[in-house]
């Protein structure tokens, strides 16, 4: 038996999701320590590179949500330092985290995804806001979901049921970033399917079904109580296989590694719609990947340790 690997968990960063990332990072670090590994936790700041150079950890696990984390930038730096990563490589992360790009790639590969338009805010200035918004409603219909093209935790996301609500939703969205994704709202069973690869190829964990009394927004995600989770989801074996199949397909088509979480909607007619994928999924007390893992019977410390060991 060799000495146990040393892991550097990266969490925090200067993003809108700093708080969620810090919580995710702490949970994972704690679980890895329980499993017997030596773990250090680092923020994304000027001390990071010197710390990694000095420590030379066996593997680095970036759990940074939002830009510089999920966009692959930090992973790229980790690779430049010659260190190993838990999770997807920088190029794959960059494609997956950009929602319209990921949708386009997957649509071309035959995965269903709601009809959408990608709209940089400069476009509205050039073409006139009213005419662009009118065209969106005419083409995509209502209701719509407006979200920043990048980022998570439902920050800046609005559910729009009437055309009157659209301008305010655009303003809220553009406060988070310069590009908006406007998507036709799809109804059905909302599920999240996590994929893990412990070295024997990608494996879909049981789908987690999300039932809320309104949109699955920030409040519903991080204040326990408003959302009811079913893990595993209340699906027939065929339905469960279908959503698992789409999540594995997403993981494969986007070239993702080690872990991912796809957010999907199973329509009443059985079609599975891809909403988005996370390469650094939330790992907090209320997050979906840990729930899926527990539903599958994994102890989290053992699972996280296995992800680390598979990445060495």
């Amino acid at each position: 038996m060799t000495t146990s690997p040393r892991v550097a968990v990266l969490a925090g960063g200067l993003t809108h999701e700093r708080d969620v990332s810090l919580r995710s990072g702490r949970r994972v670090a704690e679980a890895l320590r329980t499993s017997g590994l030596e773990v250090s936790v680092h923020d994304i700041d000027a001390d990071l590179i010197p710390a990694l150079v000095a420590l030379r950890p066996d593997v680095v696990w970036p759990i940074v949500h939002g830009p510089t984390g999920e966009d692959g930038a930090v992973s790229h730096v980790v690779e430049l330092l010659g260190l190993r990563l838990v999770g997807s490589g920088p190029h794959e992360a960059r494609v997956a985290w950009n929602k319209p790009v990921a949708k386009a790639v997957l649509e071309r590969a035959g995965v269903h995804t709601p009809a959408y338009a990608t709209l940089p805010h400069t476009l509205f200035r050039e073409l006139g806001a009213t005419s662009v918004l009118d065209a969106i409603v005419a083409r995509l219909g209502l209701p719509l979901v407006v979200k920043p093209s990048r980022g998570g935790s439902a920050l800046g996301v609005s559910w729009v049921t009437t055309a009157d609500e659209l301008p305010r939703a655009m303003v809220e969205c553009f406060a988070y970033g310069d590009i908006a994704l406007v998507e036709r709202a799809v109804t059905g069973t909302e599920v999240a399917v996590s994929v893990v690869d412990l070295g024997d190829g990608p494996l879909a964990l049981p789908a987690v079904e999300i039932v809320t009394d309104g949109p699955y927004d920030y409040d519903a995600r991080y204040n326990a109580g408003r959302t009811e989770y079913f893990a595993p989801a209340r699906l027939t074996p065929d339905e469960a296989a279908a959503v698992a199949g789409v999540a594995l397909r997403v993981h494969h088509e986007l070239g993702l590694s080690r872990l991912s979480r796809s957010d999907l909607i199973l329509r009443p007619d059985g079609v599975v719609e891809f909403i988005e994928v996370n390469v650094a999924p939330g790992m907090t007390e209320t997050s979906l990947l840990p729930q899926a893992a527990e539903a599958a019977g994994y102890e989290l410390p053992a699972l996280y340790r296995a992800l680390v060991e598979a990445s060495l």
Partner: peptide, 13 residues
């Protein structure tokens, strides 16, 4: 890892 045979209630954590 097996799909539920129809759990009655979910969890609100």
């Amino acid at each position: 890892g097996t799909p539920s045979s129809g759990a009655a209630a979910g969890t609100r954590l």
